[in-house]
């Protein structure tokens, strides 16, 4: 199940769930169904007898990690394993032992805003990591526009304003916050690029709604202009761009209500090299339902995207159950399906 509970389903039940999950994506996103062959293949992948599965030879794709630098060290109830180690060790272990194809350096707070006061430390760590590593090392963080609102930031909280029926004020607050967020991201990345970063990973774009995506797209655009060869990866926070502002637009497209296949062209237009589509897991539905739905959405996104797509796969996204440490049977099956059926370029 989407919450990690182990259940036993008949082949017929699995097929019904696959179809229902697919139908949900088709209905919401107004996108094409999977073909009969593709459903058969999904069925095969789910029912493979081995505990762990892998992609067919020749279909291997690059794999990258977000926040991986602190996955070893981290031990505050996140998905870290609490092995005391520096971020350099974290990066190098991912490169040399885990086989990551690209890696990112991230800060423990993992949002752009709190990096400002410790920028010198981030720059130095980036430099040391670059001196010791070969694979592309990006700087990664979440745009996390919520940090710009009271009580954490200077602008009045749109949630409070909306409660008081002040829609216009709420929208203005989001517009101000977006400007500051774009400015901060660009400022931080200018410094990280000066320290040898190969690029940037925008993690969870849109977490604070359409304003968050708006700010991120403008930051991507500004960075691309200044660094034509920089590597820019933009991964989303969720499948649907929530319209907290409702009217913000990029390149003439209103951001509120966009699904992955509609987000991809905008991210490309802004100047990113990689788009990271997300599909959320429904915890009360089966793995088959979630995977059928996720593959349908991601396949449409890959098709619509002018740039490579590296799908977000992890706890609670990409069809994978919502567990601290998702089970390998589900993770490997979902990943195989994303590569072989949705045709993703990376994970």
């Amino acid at each position: 199940m989407g919450d990690g509970k182990r259940v036993y389903l008949t082949k017929e039940q699995i097929l019904t769930d696959l179809r229902d999950g697919m139908a949900d994506a088709v209905d919401l996103g107004d996108i094409p169904e999977l073909s009969g062959d593709e459903l058969d293949k999904l069925m095969d992948i789910i029912t493979m007898p081995s505990r762990m599965v892998g992609v067919e030879a020749g279909m291997e794709v690059p794999v990258t990690h977000d926040i991986g630098t602190i996955r070893l060290d981290g031990d505050q109830g996140n998905s870290g394993v609490g092995i005391p180690s520096s971020r350099l060790v974290g990066c190098m272990v991912h490169e040399r032992a885990f086989g990551a194809d690209t890696m990112e350096l991230g800060h423990i707070d993992y949002s752009f805003k709190p990096v400002k006061p410790v920028i010198a430390q981030e720059m130095q760590t980036m430099e040391v990591c670059q001196q010791n590593m070969i694979i592309p090392l990006l700087y990664g963080a979440m745009p996390n526009m919520g940090l710009y609102y009271t009580p954490d930031g200077p602008f009045e909280n749109p949630g409070d304003l909306m409660k008081a029926f002040k829609i216009q004020e709420a929208q203005e607050s989001m517009e101000h916050a977006a400007k500051h967020l774009t400015r901060d991201i660009v400022w931080i990345m200018q410094r990280m690029m000066a320290s040898g970063a190969d690029g940037v990973n925008f993690d969870t774009v849109g977490a604070a709604g359409d304003g968050d995506m708006y700010a991120s797209l403008h930051a991507i655009e500004a960075l691309r202009k200044q660094y034509p060869d920089m590597y820019i990866e933009a991964g989303m926070a969720g499948e649907l761009m929530l319209g907290l502002h409702g009217e913000m637009a990029y390149d003439g497209t209103v951001l509120a209500g966009l699904w992955p296949h509609q987000q991809a062209p905008l991210v490309a237009k802004a100047g990113a090299n990689i788009f990271g589509p997300v599909v959320n897991t429904n915890t009360s539905k089966s793995f088959a339902w979630n995977l059928g739905r996720a593959v349908t959405f991601v396949k449409a996104a890959v098709k619509a995207s002018p740039i490579p797509c590296h799908v977000n796969m992890g706890m609670g996204v990409g069809g994978i159950p919502m567990l601290e440490t998702p089970t390998i049977d589900a993770v490997s099956r979902a990943s195989k399906a994303m590569v072989e059926i949705a045709n993703v370029d990376g994970i």
Binding site: I167, G243, L244, A256
Partner: peptide, 15 residues
């Protein structure tokens, strides 16, 4: 409910 319109839209429509 279907994610085509959002809270600010609903508030504007209500107004």
């Amino acid at each position: 409910e279907r994610g085509k319109l959002f809270l600010p839209h609903v508030m504007m429509a209500a107004g």
